[in-house]
Amino acid sequence: MIAATRLAPLLLGALIAAATLSSSVSAQQVFDLSPEQPGRPRAEKNEEAIKLIGKDAKFAKDGVFTVAIASTRLPFGAYGTDTRTLVGSEPDIAQLVADSLGRKLEIVSVAWADWPLGVASGKYDAVVSNVTVTEARKEKFDFSTYRKDLLGFYVKASNPISIKEPKDVAGLKVIVSSGTNQEQILLRWNEQNIKDGLKPVELQYHDDDVVLYLALESGRADAYLGPNALLGFRAAREAKTRLAGNFSGGWPLLAEIAVTTRKGNGLAEAITQAINTQIGNGNYAKALTRWNLAPEAIEKSATNPAGLPKS
């Protein structure tokens, strides 16, 4: 993750531009980046969740749920058209939790490296910023899950291929970022395929997104493997690529994203209950769908589930 930076209004305008494409390609989706966020789901106060707040729980501010968000990449979070207000899927989830706990939401934009100390010290009540549950993090933090951590294979919109398992990438030219979790998984898939007598994968590395997507559009590459949320948002916005298959970012283990709070501060169970109530009443689905994250929805929030193992 990178330190928060403000997006220029012209860039934001480009992000929400829509156009009618040919019948072979899905229409571009329009995403609301206004500071008012009229489509953001809101929740009623949840007395059941409030009762689960620990007796010794302390909030950073009275009557406020202070949330750190360390992303300026959509769909997670970015500055809206006023260049001041953070909008995106993470602010939407944070709003539902704050409403459920009967508190005003205050979002603080932070650098990724700063949230652990901020949460541990009580400066922020929670971080809602695409944080994956890991066993190492569970030593210092509590978790309330709210989304699957998925990777996705994206292909040219007119490309009919489907990728569901290792053998499906045999012989393909696949773009992946060097040094990433997805690269390690793809390398393991490739090793398995070679052992099974299948054609190897041709891995491609591109530092420039323009070059990367040109490779997909021209057929010089068959697929791009990366974080499903980011690639899916771009696919919905531009309608030039489509999802060909996805799997857990912890493959072969389950990886989940969670609201992260200081360990033992008495908030996790209340937040989990709040999320489950919103799953039940449909607000949760609305929050994900409006940012093209429906594929990453979970059926039930859990407190401190098994996380990815220590390396």
Rank of each mutant, 00 (worst) to 15 (best):
N46Y: 13
F143C: 04
D168G: 03
P91A: 15
A244W: 01
F76S: 11
T261F: 03
A157M: 04
F141Q: 00
P41V: 08
D222C: 07
L52T: 08
I53G: 12
F143H: 02
I161L: 05
G54A: 10
S100A: 07
A14P: 09
T289Y: 09
F141H: 02
A98T: 03
T277F: 08
A285N: 11
S22K: 12
G118N: 03
I69N: 05
Y205I: 13
A111D: 05
S34L: 09
T261R: 06
N159E: 04
S71W: 14
Q184K: 11
P35F: 04
A157I: 06
V128C: 00
T260D: 05
T134G: 06
I161E: 02
V110S: 02
F76Y: 13
S162A: 13
Y79W: 14
A14F: 13
L86F: 00
A19P: 00
F153C: 04
D207S: 14
S178P: 08
E269K: 06
L151H: 07
D207N: 13
S178W: 01
W112Q: 12
S301M: 06
I161Q: 05
T66Q: 13
L231D: 08
F153E: 03
S301D: 08
P41T: 11
R290M: 11
P295T: 01
L74W: 03
G88F: 02
S89V: 05
L10F: 12
P227D: 00
G226L: 10
K58N: 11
V174T: 05
S23G: 10
Q273V: 13
E48S: 15
K45F: 03
T241V: 03
A68E: 07
V259D: 09
R262H: 06
F141T: 01
T272K: 07
